[in-house]
Each structure stands twice: as structure tokens, then as C-alpha cells.
């Protein structure tokens, strides 16, 4: 009791990285919501859904943060992290095929990154989510094996 496995430490550290990322970007977006909406309206394919996305993205980010805080829901949270980051990355990659410069609506200093750096940054977080999912599943499999033996 009270001991920490290396896999638990990895999962917690990845959770913290995602909590910092999502809380930071959500708060940055919410502080300038109208400006965030304006930038979204100027992005390709976003014009009609910009008001929904402007509220939806920070809301989803904060919900995922809440799920990451509860160990029971971490697997669902990491799947959501993976989905959201993949969606952002796929959208950026598709849009960059059509335009060299698109206004970034990422929130805070993250918008200061170039688009290529931004895609690499997202890819790194996608890998972290995959690693966390793998570790949680491995940990669960070990637990069920211990119960059966």
C-alpha cells in the first residue's frame, strides 16, 4: 500500500503535461473569446461553425482536464486527448496544403509557433497519449492477471 509503480509515475506525468496544456490553452482562449471566434471565422471551412467551436474547444479541453484528475476516468480521458490532438493536427495539415499562412487560434504562446513546429508539438502529445493508453491497459491486464492467479 502507498507504493508507486514506474507505470503510475509515467501515467501521472503525462496527465500533468496534458492538464498544463489544456488548462493553459483553454484559459488563454476564454480570456479573449471574441478574438478567438474572429480568428476561427477566418480559417478555412470554419466560418459557419466558428461560434460553436469557439465555445466548444475550451469547454472540451476543461472537461478532459477534469477526467484526467480522476484516476478511474483516465483511460477515457487519454482517448479523448488522442482524438482531440489528432483532430487539431489533421485539420492543420489539411489546411496547410491549401494555404501557406493561416491565422493560428491556438491560445497563448502556442500561437507563436510556426505551423510546422506546431504539428511536431501536436505529434509529440499524440505519442504521449498513446504511451499513456498503453501503460494503463498494461497495468489493468497485470491487475486482472494477479486476481485470477
Amino acid at each position: 500500500m502507498g507504493t508507486t509503480r514506474p507505470s503510475n509515475v509515467i501515467i501521472t506525468l503525462i496527465s500533468i503535461a496534458y492538464i498544463i496544456l489544456f488548462v493553459y490553452t483553454a484559459v488563454s482562449k476564454l480570456m479573449h473569446l471574441s478574438q478567438f471566434q474572429l480568428r476561427l471565422e477566418r480559417m478555412p471551412y470554419m466560418e459557419s461553425i466558428a461560434p460553436w467551436v469557439a465555445f466548444g474547444v475550451p469547454f472540451v479541453e476543461l472537461v478532459i482536464t477534469g477526467l484526467l484528475l480522476i484516476p478511474k476516468y483516465r483511460l477515457i480521458a487519454f482517448h479523448a486527448c488522442l482524438g482531440l490532438m489528432t483532430l487539431f493536427t489533421a485539420y492543420s495539415a489539411i489546411v496547410l496544403n491549401f494555404s501557406e499562412s493561416i491565422p493560428c487560434s491556438c491560445g497563448g504562446v502556442i500561437s507563436a509557433m510556426g505551423w510546422k513546429v506546431h504539428i511536431l508539438f501536436n505529434a509529440f502529445f499524440i505519442l504521449l497519449a498513446l504511451l499513456a493508453i498503453f501503460q494503463i491497459k498494461k497495468h489493468k491486464a497485470q491487475l486482472s492477471k494477479q486476481h485470477t492467479t
Partner: peptide
Amino acid sequence: FAIIMAVGLAF
């Protein structure tokens, strides 16, 4: 601590 730090960083 992570939440407090992220909010602080955002501001």
C-alpha cells in the same frame, strides 16, 4: 499545482 501553474502561465 499543474492547474495553478497553467492558469498563472495563461495570465
